[in-house]
Computed example of a mutant assay.
Amino acid sequence: MKPIRHNRRDDEAVLDAARDCVLAVGVRRTTLTDVARRAGVSRMTIYRRWPDVRTLVGDVMTREWVSVTLGDTPTTDTTRPVREQLVDGLVAGLRAFRSHPLLCKILDVDPELLLPYLFDRRGASQDALLAFVQEALEQGHKDGSVRADHPLRQTRSLFLVIQSFALSLQTMTDAADPELADEAFYDELRHILERTLAP
């Protein structure tokens, strides 16, 4: 039996359509038929690649969130310490992630979709961010700007801090108080990361 070949252009069209459907009606009301119609492909094209909506939305989340958190990461600047660049990148990525329309929609109407990634397993976007952070920490160990430690444990611990800001920040902010607004917490995160990573 020949392996099924996937057309990258069709895949991107389907992911775009699925994203647009979720933004319009949420995950629970999105169907593969709606996605196929919006993407201009047959339902079988989708069924061959994704067995259900949640699998498809998982791939959409991975694509969108890896792009927004890592897509604008600058190339290494040898004139600046790695720790400084990493902290800047993580705070900027968090800010972009939290304002992403897909995350806002899911938190608003389908927050239970995120529970498996908090309690049961890591997702592909989490693994991509972990790999990025670990590589940066190892470079920081080499240039002396990051406290030397077990790189994988250090990476995962750092990620736990960032993840709490990413998904729970809205429970701690108060728009009426500038000292408790989002930006104040981003500054606090920067301080936490700097102090955690400093040698």
Rank of each mutant, 00 (worst) to 15 (best):
3 P>M: 10
4 I>A: 04
5 R>D: 07
5 R>Q: 14
6 H>F: 08
12 E>C: 12
13 A>V: 06
14 V>G: 03
15 L>M: 05
16 D>F: 04
16 D>E: 09
16 D>H: 08
20 D>P: 06
23 L>W: 00
24 A>N: 03
26 G>M: 10
27 V>A: 07
29 R>K: 15
31 T>R: 05
31 T>F: 03
31 T>Y: 01
31 T>N: 00
32 L>K: 05
33 T>E: 06
34 D>C: 13
35 V>K: 00
35 V>G: 03
35 V>D: 03
41 V>N: 01
42 S>A: 13
42 S>C: 07
42 S>I: 08
43 R>G: 06
46 I>A: 03
47 Y>L: 07
47 Y>G: 02
47 Y>R: 05
51 P>D: 00
55 T>C: 07
56 L>Q: 02
62 T>F: 06
64 E>G: 02
65 W>I: 08
65 W>R: 06
65 W>K: 07
66 V>N: 01
66 V>M: 06
66 V>A: 07
67 S>R: 14
67 S>E: 12
67 S>L: 10
70 L>I: 08
70 L>F: 05
71 G>T: 03
71 G>P: 04
71 G>Q: 02
73 T>C: 03
74 P>H: 03
77 D>N: 04
78 T>Q: 09
79 T>L: 07
80 R>P: 00
82 V>N: 00
84 E>M: 09
84 E>T: 14
85 Q>D: 02
86 L>F: 05
86 L>W: 01
89 G>R: 09
92 A>M: 06
96 A>Y: 01
96 A>D: 09
98 R>G: 11
100 H>W: 04
101 P>W: 08
102 L>V: 12
102 L>P: 05
103 L>Y: 12
104 C>K: 14
106 I>Q: 04
107 L>R: 14
108 D>I: 02
109 V>N: 12
110 D>R: 04
110 D>I: 08
111 P>F: 08
112 E>Q: 14
115 L>I: 14
117 Y>A: 15
119 F>K: 15
120 D>C: 14
120 D>V: 14
123 G>W: 02
123 G>P: 00
129 L>Q: 08
129 L>D: 09
130 L>W: 02
135 E>A: 12
140 G>H: 01
142 K>D: 15
142 K>V: 12
145 S>L: 00
146 V>N: 00
148 A>W: 09
149 D>P: 06
149 D>N: 10
150 H>P: 11
151 P>I: 01
154 Q>M: 07
156 R>C: 13
156 R>N: 11
156 R>H: 10
157 S>V: 11
158 L>P: 05
159 F>H: 10
166 A>H: 10
166 A>E: 11
170 Q>K: 14
171 T>S: 14
171 T>V: 14
174 D>V: 09
178 P>A: 01
179 E>G: 02
180 L>P: 02
182 D>V: 11
183 E>R: 13
183 E>S: 13
187 D>C: 15
189 L>P: 10
190 R>M: 06
191 H>T: 15
195 R>T: 13
198 A>I: 14
198 A>H: 08
